[in-house]
Structures are given as structure tokens and as C-alpha cells.
Write a protein that binds this DNA or RNA. Structure first.
Lengths: 235, 235
DNA sequence: GTTTTTCTGTGAGGTGCTTCACAAACCTGT
DNA sequence: ACAGGTTTGTGAAGCACCTCACAGAAAAAC
């Protein structure tokens, strides 16, 4: 059973889709599963990066921490997505921490197994490159946003993006972001303070554009947020 | 002559080093050279990305522009370096503009030539991946720095980095950054205002840590800047 | 050599966001 | 059911950085 799950996960992932049965089986034979509790750390900045991970169940956040304790969340990795490929591929240390946001199972592939496999399968190479390109685009966009958009624009963009990824249409109308995301965590994703996020959310709630609950945001007026974003882009 | 130069360029580049003679020749036969004047635009955000470029002579800057006209410089591409690989590989549009900083010659390889070539050469695949990993690391670091470091720390870091890349030891002591970089351009590299950069540079000049000239910075006290950076990292 | 453009230097004033500080609401474990 | 942690809501104070506004210097253009 577990094996079948693994295979389904592998074959549906962005990284490994389109690979044939035999290849998947060989790759599968290289993996082990690791279980993590909520808030457990998988690796930290500076660790040697000798493995690739795929999320089987749960969520992993990729965060960088400054010496004084501030954090920025660079990415949240969902079920079926892979991560940790950068350090694996270039052989350098990890540049960020990986922490389980809830009880999580990851599947682990060692470099010594993966690299030779990669060298034998050009098609897989192409997919890896696609993934890397995607990463570059995402992080570049973060640089851009940090430089151009004020807080309200960045927050609007993040909410719309989260709604897109995890949104659930509500019977009473509106789109709930189906993720337990405290405002603190939201703030970290945007490189800003929790208080600032809260104040902006309050403004929008008073406008009737969103609804708030502990760890939850429901977007009632997507158009309005879209407009905030566009206005912010024009300064 | 031109052909020999091209070959030398190709074979020494980060991207293509280690490839054998025959491969280089085949790749070479796919390239054409394009000449750009100072400030000429090679491509802009939104263009279809159907080619890969290598700088033969001169410098190209990669910048993103906001609707209102603000700019952030993401990267400066030097002689012997390649760029434009992201859009080429994933088939999406360019996400930034490429502008010649001086009279520049770039060599151009079309996607329809490069991709099939890539698929036939696993070794080249690996090198491309290395390059992509490097890009991810650089941009991630920019996100981190923007979030954690105040202006003085970011500027110190940039100057030290530039000195490392383009530094020339001066007879009278100090390290000159051998690049014509107006303070405006420096500011754009850090996502900040020209005035702020200037004021910080003045402070350091008054401390005797740097010397300034039009488009030039000479670092007299590298240690001091290093210390500023470390202090900034601790908040 | 004179004009024009680019780059630098500097002050004043405004503000977006941070930090600090605390209260209330909410969930969780035993 | 009560205690202790976590998340939210909010105000006040401060400051890092931005924008605006020039003036002079240096290079480029003519």
C-alpha cells in the first residue's frame, strides 16, 4: 500500500511526471521515508546537501533565519512537491532551513543514487531544469516585489496567490484560504512585521473585503484586492 | 580570428567548460554574433525567450522595471558569461530586461538549435543545472539581504562583493572597483535610492574607509566594511 | 571652447513601517 | 475546568529611508 502511494506521488509530481514505469520503480527502490513531527527540523542552513526530498504528506516550510532571530519564509512545500534539489545538484551546503509545519512524511533520495540516475536519463534532466527555472522565477519575483511593492500591495498579492493555490469556495460566498497560516507566518512570507500585516488586514476587514479567523483568511472581494495590487504597482 | 575568439570564450565559460572539441565546433556553428551600442536593449520583459546569449565583449545588465519607472538591477553579466537561459529552457517569456552597459558583442544561440543539442549531451545538462543552481542561490540571497540587512549592511556587502569580482589593487593602497558604476546604478542593484547610497558612502569616506570618484569606489579599509556587515547581520 | 548632459553632494521634510507594550480572545493539554 | 501557550487586536513613539529640491563638478557632445 505504502509502495503504491509512493509511486502515485512520484508519477504525478512536477519533477517526475512523464517517466516510464521502469524508471519509477528504479527510483522508488532508492527512497526511504522519514516521518517528522510538527515543528521538527529536517535540515538547517549550512548542512551538507546530500539528499533530495519529496513531501508525501504534510507541509514543509523553507525559511532563512538571521543571527538575531528574524525569519523569512521563502517557500511552502506541499504534498507531491520536491525540494532540496539545489544543494543536491551543486554539491554545496543548504542555504536555508526546512521545518515541518505539521506532522509530515517526506521521502528521501540520496545524492549518490540520484545523480548517476540523472546522468542516464536526459528526459529527467530536462524536468529538473524546468523545476530550477521555476525556482529562479519565483525568487526573482520576490526580489522584485520587495523592491517595488509597498506592504498593502505585497499582502494583496500574497493573499490572492494563496487563494489561488489553497482556496476553497465557501457556501456563504468568499474564498477561504485552506491553510493554517497565523498572521506571524504570513508576515514572515513577506519579510515584514506581524503587526503591520494585522493592521492592513483590519483595514480590509472593515471595508468588508475579507473575513478573519484564527489562522484563516477568507477573501470576500477578490476584485478589490486585485485593484489594490494594481494601484500599488503604479506606485 | 573571430572564430578562434568565440571558441576560446565558449570553452572557458562556466557553462560550457569541459566539453570536447567536436561538441564546441557543433555548438559554434549554431551561433551568430550581435553587436549592441551602449544602452541598447537586447530584450525586454514579456518578450518570448527563444535564445541563449553569451557575452563576448562588454557588459549586459539584467533589470526589472516597475510600471512607474523604478528599476532594480538583478545581475550584471560579464565577458564569458551566459544569460537568458531561464526563458530559453522553460519556454516562457522573459521576466526582465537586458541592456548593454557599454558597446557589447553577444553571441546568440537559438532554442531550436540548443535544446536538441542539450538532450543529446547529459554532461552539458549537468553544467546547465549548475548554472541554474547558482542563479537560485544568488537571487535567494538577495531576498534574504533585502529582508534582514539595513542599508549600510547591504551596501557594505555589495562593495565587498564588487571588490572581489572586479577589484584592482592600487599602487597607493586600497582596492579600486574596476567598473564604471554610477551611484545611481549601485542604488538600483540594492533596491534603494541614489541619495541614500551617496550619504552612506560619504560617511565612510569621512571615516577614511573608502575613496570616491565619478563612477568609482576605492576601498581603503576592507576590514571596516566587513565589520559593518557583520554588525548589521546581528541587527 | 562652449553648451548640454550626466553624475555627485547635501539639506529639509515627510511617512511607511518597525518596535514596544499590553489586553483580550482563543485553543490545548491534563 | 483551569492553566499556560498561542494568536490576534491596537495604540504610541521612533526612525530609517524616501522624495523633493537644488547646486556644483565632471564628462560628453557639438
Amino acid at each position: 500500500m505504502v509502495v503504491r502511494d509512493k509511486k502515485a506521488l512520484l508519477s504525478n509530481s512536477e519533477l517526475l511526471s512523464g517517466l516510464d514505469e521502469a524508471m519509477l520503480d528504479r527510483l522508488l527502490s532508492m527512497t526511504v521515508t522519514r516521518r517528522l513531527d510538527k515543528n521538527e527540523t529536517l535540515f538547517v542552513k549550512g548542512d551538507p546537501g546530500d539528499s533530495l526530498f519529496g513531501v508525501q504528506e504534510g507541509k514543509i516550510k523553507i525559511v532563512t533565519t538571521s543571527p538575531n532571530g528574524k525569519e523569512v519564509t521563502l517557500n511552502i512545500i506541499e504534498e507531491g512537491q520536491f525540494f532540496g534539489e539545489i544543494a543536491l545538484l551543486d554539491g554545496m551546503d543548504r542555504t536555508a532551513d526546512a521545518i515541518a509545519m505539521e506532522k509530515t512524511e517526506v521521502l528521501v533520495i540520496q545524492r549518490r543514487d540520484f545523480i548517476p540516475f540523472l546522468e542516464k536519463h536526459p528526459k529527467l534532466c530536462i524536468q529538473v531544469m524546468q523545476l530550477l527555472c521555476h525556482r529562479v522565477r519565483l525568487t526573482s519575483e520576490m526580489v522584485e516585489d520587495a523592491a517595488f511593492l509597498p506592504l498593502d500591495g505585497r499582502l494583496a498579492k500574497r493573499l490572492l496567490n494563496l487563494a489561488d493555490l489553497y482556496g476553497q469556495e465557501q457556501p456563504g460566498g468568499g474564498v477561504l484560504i485552506g491553510l493554517n497560516l497565523p498572521q506571524q507566518e504570513l508576515a514572515r512570507m513577506m519579510g515584514t512585521s506581524r503587526e503591520s500585516v494585522n493592521k492592513q488586514l483590519q483595514i480590509w476587514r472593515n471595508q468588508g473585503w475579507i473575513e478573519l479567523a484564527r489562522g484563516k483568511v477568507t477573501i470576500l472581494n477578490e476584485q478589490a484586492l486585485q485593484y489594490v495590487l494594481e494601484a500599488a504597482e503604479f506606485d
